[in-house]
Structure formats: C-alpha cells, structure tokens
C-alpha cells in the first residue's frame, strides 16, 4: 500500500490542530507495569550457537556507527568510515554496518571516505535540526537539513521540538516534521531519492510512556521514515520498554495504514547481549518483516566492538579481548 491510503485512513486526524490533539489524546494509555514486564520477559530469552551467530551478524549490519562529539575531526570520521566498511580486518566475512552517523558538517567527509574506501553500500546519516536540543528557529533547522542533504547525506536524523510537544503544541511539531521532510528532497533535476527521515523523540525528556506513544503516532502521521528513541546525549536513552512501545506503534500504524515505518533505538546499547535482547523484542513484537537494516537500526558506537569480540569468540572458541578490536 502507499502513502495515499495512509492519508485516506487517517486524513481527518491531521486536518487541524485540535483534531490532532483529540486523536493523540484518544490513543489508549500505556500499561506501564505490563509493558515493563513484557520487555523484561523477552529480555530473558537465551540465543545460542547458530542463532547467535546469525543474530550477531544481523546486529552488525544494523548499526548506525556513530560519532557525535564536539571533538570530531575529519580524521576521526574517516577512521570510523574505514571501520564501518571493514569492521574486522582479520575476518573478511564480517558484514558491513548500515550507516555512519555524523554531524552535518562531516557528512561530505564521510561520504567521500566511504566511496573511496570500499564502503559505497554504507549510508551516510547526518543529524540535523539543531541536534541534540532542537532549540533553534525553523529556518535554521531547515537550512541545516538542506546543507546535510546537499553534502550527500542519505539519511537525516532530526530531533523534535520537545518544548512544543510537552506544552501540547502538537500542530507545531507536526508541521516542523513535514517541513524537514520536504527539505530532505534532492533538488529537482538531480534525480536522487529523497533522504530518509529519522525522527528523534528523546524519550528521556518525554517523561511518560503515554507521551512516547503520542510522539510515535505524531511523527508517523507527519511522514517519518524511521522513529528513533533518543540522541544519546541525556541520562535516559534507549531502553527495552520504550523501544517495545515504539515497535507496537509501528505495528499498529502499518495495520491501520499499510505503511511500514522503521525503528532505531540509540544510546546506551553497549554490548552484544543487549543488542540480542532488542532483536528478540523486534521479532516477537513486529515479526521478521522488521529484522533488516532497512527497518531496524542501532545507534551505537561501542556496541560494534563488543559484537566483534563475540563474533571472534564464536568463530575461534576462545574469548576475545579489547586488544583485538580498534580503539575509537
């Protein structure tokens, strides 16, 4: 099904600010205890041997390898690109990561490094819209986005205006996402696909599960291609329960409109065990349709090293150590 049918199914809810508010507040409340218990239960599944090997490779191929520091240099971005293209030089069967995630001024550097270094299939994701706070004028956010798209970013990670969301101005957030979505289009004549839009909620600042559910629906209605938990810059980032909640939202959204939306937990996922728990939750909540880098991503930096060490353990039978992966 296409975006046309999604518009017809839910067209009236976005027709006005009050209709949108009515719709979002009419969403069923989240059963906090049930949600957390469900996530905890799924987190106890044990994945071993061949299933583990499959899951580790899948997780590596889903990583948005990220560096979002004030101290980022072109050299650091280039070395990250080299790592993403060839995560384990001692084992060429290791899959490449899904994307390299950088600030918008580094997007061109990343694009160049990837195409020069055998990583042409790896996407460049750029954060934009005054990441991580989102506190800037709309014109600045749109300019930020256009610059990143022009620099070659394949994906844009935008942050929503949490201030507007928390004060109930859903229409403003909705329009902002639509405007950024518009800015993701390539200039006419260049013929390129528009950049994929990931919308970051910063779950740690939304305080309640109900708000996360509302933000999910809001972003999906506004045309997000992916919904993303957090920036990685605040105390609470991706957790199993809030990712489960967002997966339920994309499942219900597809059932209602036929449009499939991706999910990206980011921040705080540091080891292979955690990553495998997320994959179990994906499989049990939305099924194998989402078990692909096109529909599920991990925003992470140190996770890759732990996955590589686990992979080495599986292939050699010996526990590996940090001496056998890069320091980054």
């Amino acid at each position: 099904m296409s975006a046309g049918s999604s518009a017809s199914a839910l067209a009236d809810v976005t027709s006005s600010d009050s209709a949108l508010r009515r719709y979002l507040h009419g969403l069923p409340g989240v059963d906090t205890v049930g949600l957390e218990a469900r996530a905890a239960t799924l987190g106890t599944r044990s994945i071993k041997t061949t299933a583990k090997a499959y899951a580790i490779d899948l997780a590596i191929s889903m990583i948005d390898l990220t560096t979002l520091e004030g101290s980022d240099t072109p050299g650091k971005v280039r070395s990250l690109c080299a790592k993403g293209s060839n995560p384990d030089p001692s084992d060429r069967t290791t899959p490449q990561v899904a994307a390299i995630c950088v600030y918008s001024d580094m997007a061109a550097t990343a694009k160049q490094a990837l195409s020069a270094g055998g990583g042409a299939g790896i996407k460049v994701a750029s954060v934009a819209t005054a990441f991580p706070s989102g506190r800037a004028a709309l014109s600045v956010k749109l300019a930020d986005t256009r610059e990143a798209v022009a620099a070659g970013a394949d994906e844009i990670d935008m942050v929503i205006d949490r201030g507007a969301f928390l004060s109930g101005r859903y229409g403003k957030v909705f329009e902002e996402i639509q405007a950024v979505k518009e800015a993701c289009k390539r200039p006419s004549g260049s013929g390129g696909e528009p950049a994929h839009l990931k919308v970051i909620f910063e779950n740690g600042e939304l305080s309640t599960y109900d708000n996360i559910r509302r933000a999910s629906w809001l972003a999906m209605l506004a045309g997000a291609d992916f919904i993303k938990t957090s920036t990685g810059k605040v105390a609470v980032n991706a957790t199993l329960p809030n990712t489960l909640l967002m997966l339920e939202a994309v499942r219900d959204f597809r059932a209602a409109t036929g449009t499939q939306i991706g999910v990206k937990p980011a921040g705080g996922i540091r080891n292979a065990k955690d990553a495998l728990r997320y994959l179990v939750v994906v499989n049990e909540t939305v099924g194998s349709d989402w078990l692909s880098p096109d529909w599920f991503r991990f925003g992470a930096s140190s996770l890759l090293n732990d996955l590589l060490m686990q992979r080495q353990k599986l292939s050699t039978g010996r526990y590996s150590g940090p001496d056998y992966v890069t320091v980054d």
């Binding site: 080495q312 039978g317 010996r318 526990y319 590996s320 150590g321 940090p322 001496d323 056998y324």
Partner: peptide, 9 residues
C-alpha cells in the same frame, strides 16, 4: 583451559 585460551589474559 578457558583462562589459557582467553585472548585477554
């Protein structure tokens, strides 16, 4: 045996 094979020992 595990410790002897461990790469980080």
């Amino acid at each position: 045996a595990t410790l002897a094979a461990h790469q980080d020992v």
